[in-house]
Computed example of a mutant assay.
Amino acid sequence: MLQLVYVSSVRPGAQDVDPAMILEKSRVNNTRDSITGLLYSDGTRFLQALEGPAEKVQAAYTRIKADPRHRAVVMLSERAIEEREFGDWAMAHKTPGSDEQAFIDRVSALAASASPNVRATFESFAQVRRGA
């Protein structure tokens, strides 16, 4: 099984960047492909971990890189894993005016079973984006 973690930015002027719609479509694709993970979005940036069969995860990442809503897609890690670290698919999304600490706590809880490096990536990203 493969785990891939990437970060990207929303392309300025991109249409259809509704995180709820993205999650809905992702759930359909990911269920079909046996992919799970975590998608963090604050409306301007995405941090995502994908886990599942290597060829399916690679295909999903290729689709994401080709998606015109994304720019500056950067792979942060790619590694073989024995078992899923994120369990069921989940999404953490920060809405303007929401409780910052509650959001950071939610990201920490969702990433709790991930490897220390991957967990630190999600937690630090949420902290850095706190004021964004």
Score class of each variant (00 low, 15 high):
V73G: 08
L110Q: 07
M1T: 01
V74E: 15
P68R: 12
L2N: 04
I81D: 02
V7D: 01
Y40H: 12
Q127Y: 10
G37T: 03
T44W: 06
R130P: 09
S115M: 11
R69H: 06
R63C: 09
F86W: 14
V5G: 05
M75P: 00
A102T: 11
G52C: 09
D18K: 09
A132W: 11
I104S: 07
K25T: 05
W89D: 01
E51K: 14
V57W: 04
F122I: 13
S8P: 07
G37L: 07
R79D: 14
A59V: 00
D99W: 12
V57S: 06
V28E: 11
P12W: 04
A60H: 03
E100V: 15
V74L: 04
S9N: 06
S34V: 10
M91K: 02
H70F: 06
A109K: 10
S108V: 02
G43P: 08
R84Q: 02
D67S: 01
Y40R: 04
S98K: 03
A112L: 05
V128G: 03
V28W: 02
N30D: 03
E82G: 15
Q3I: 05
H93D: 09
L38Y: 02
V17M: 08
G43N: 08
R27L: 13
L23F: 11
Y6F: 13
A126I: 00
V7N: 04
N29S: 12
L4P: 00
D88A: 14
A109N: 04
Q48K: 07
V5Y: 06
R27G: 04
N29C: 03
A54D: 15
S41I: 00
D16N: 12
K25W: 04
F122L: 11
I64R: 02
E85R: 15
N30K: 05
F103H: 15
A111E: 09
Y61S: 04
I35G: 04
Q48T: 11
R129Y: 09
P53Y: 01
A66S: 13
L110R: 04
R11H: 11
E123M: 06
D42N: 11
Y6H: 09
A114T: 08
G87Y: 09
V28N: 01
A49Q: 05
A114M: 07
Q15Y: 01
R130A: 15
W89L: 15
L76M: 13
K94Q: 13
A109V: 04
S26H: 00
S77Y: 05
Y61P: 01
W89Q: 03
E123V: 08
L110A: 10
V10D: 00
F125A: 15
E55F: 06
R71T: 11
D16E: 05
E24R: 10
R106H: 14
E123W: 02
A109D: 14
R71G: 00
